[in-house]
């Protein structure tokens, strides 16, 4: 059906919870190396969509193919999907609170996930360097031995992004990275994501339009509404789209 090789192709996805259609006939295509921003009002199905991709929820119907149709994500469970290089940052920062920052990164390092390796595998010096590098990137070097639970909210968000980096994921799914951050933190988070673009394929879910403008920079933005793609295109075009103004921006301006 599709002519161009897509990294991720979702076709006809539907998922309902007790009659509520969270995702409704969703079609979504992602190219390798893209930085895609997904916006949409509350309940548009953004997080459910990520749940479907990462295997947390099973759709009622539809298909979800990975890497130019080579793998059917619906047949895989959470950790298998992860091992295909799909990493996710959750909406509320989900790190291991009782582990130190370094331990959090060690757990996320790319490499074997076997019991044997966990028992007898040593951390190589390359991996050590990689961790140090990531710590610098996410600006947590001086907190390396603190427990993650003791970090500030924004730092946890970054640690989680750092965990995605340690994973060397091909696709980063980033759910509302700017939530609960100060303006400055938000801006720096945007910078971080932009610096990763190209090296990784990234899907960012976001509410904050300033942030969306910062990171999209003419790239494609997808608007979800009632579990369906409402429109796609550069941020300016999307923002001037009548339907989008009605369902999303319109409400937002009213609220403001």
């Amino acid at each position: 059906m599709s002519q161009k090789p897509f990294l991720l192709a979702a076709e006809g996805l539907s998922k309902s919870f007790d009659g509520f259609k969270a995702i409704n006939d969703l079609n979504f295509y992602l190219d390798e190396g893209e930085l895609r921003t997904v916006i949409g009002p509350n309940g548009a199905g953004k997080t459910t969509f990520l749940d479907l991709i990462t295997g947390r929820t099973q759709p009622d119907e539809g298909s979800l193919m990975w890497d130019d149709g080579k793998h059917d994500l619906l047949r895989l469970n959470e950790y298998e999907i992860y091992r295909h290089g799909i990493g996710r940052k959750f909406q509320t920062p989900t790190v291991y609170n009782d582990h130190t920052v370094t331990e959090n990164l060690i757990l996320s390092l790319a490499g074997s996930r076997s019991i044997w390796h966990s028992l007898f595998g040593k951390i190589t010096s390359t991996q050590r360097d990689r961790i140090a590098e990531i710590l610098t990137t996410i600006k947590l070097a001086e907190h390396a031995n603190r427990k993650a639970g003791a970090l500030a909210h924004g730092q946890k968000q970054w640690l989680e992004i750092g965990m995605l980096l340690a994973q060397e994921a091909r696709l980063l799914l980033v759910d509302e990275p700017a939530a609960g951050m100060t303006d400055e933190e938000t801006y720096r988070t945007g910078e971080l994501l932009l610096s990763l673009a190209g090296k990784h394929t990234i899907v960012v879910i976001e509410h904050d339009m300033t942030f969306v403008r910062q990171i999209s920079q003419g790239r494609k933005v997808t608007v979800l509404h009632q579990g369906h793609v409402l429109c796609e295109g550069p941020v300016d075009r999307v923002q001037s789209d009548e339907r989008v103004i009605e369902v999303y921006l319109g409400r937002k301006s009213k609220a403001a």
Binding site: R56, Y79, Y96
Partner: peptide, 17 residues
């Protein structure tokens, strides 16, 4: 590390592969 991670947040460990 993994053991304690499972104790604290098993789903997160699943999503760490």
């Amino acid at each position: 590390l993994i053991q304690r991670a499972i104790r604290d947040s098993e789903n997160r460990v699943l999503f760490s592969g």
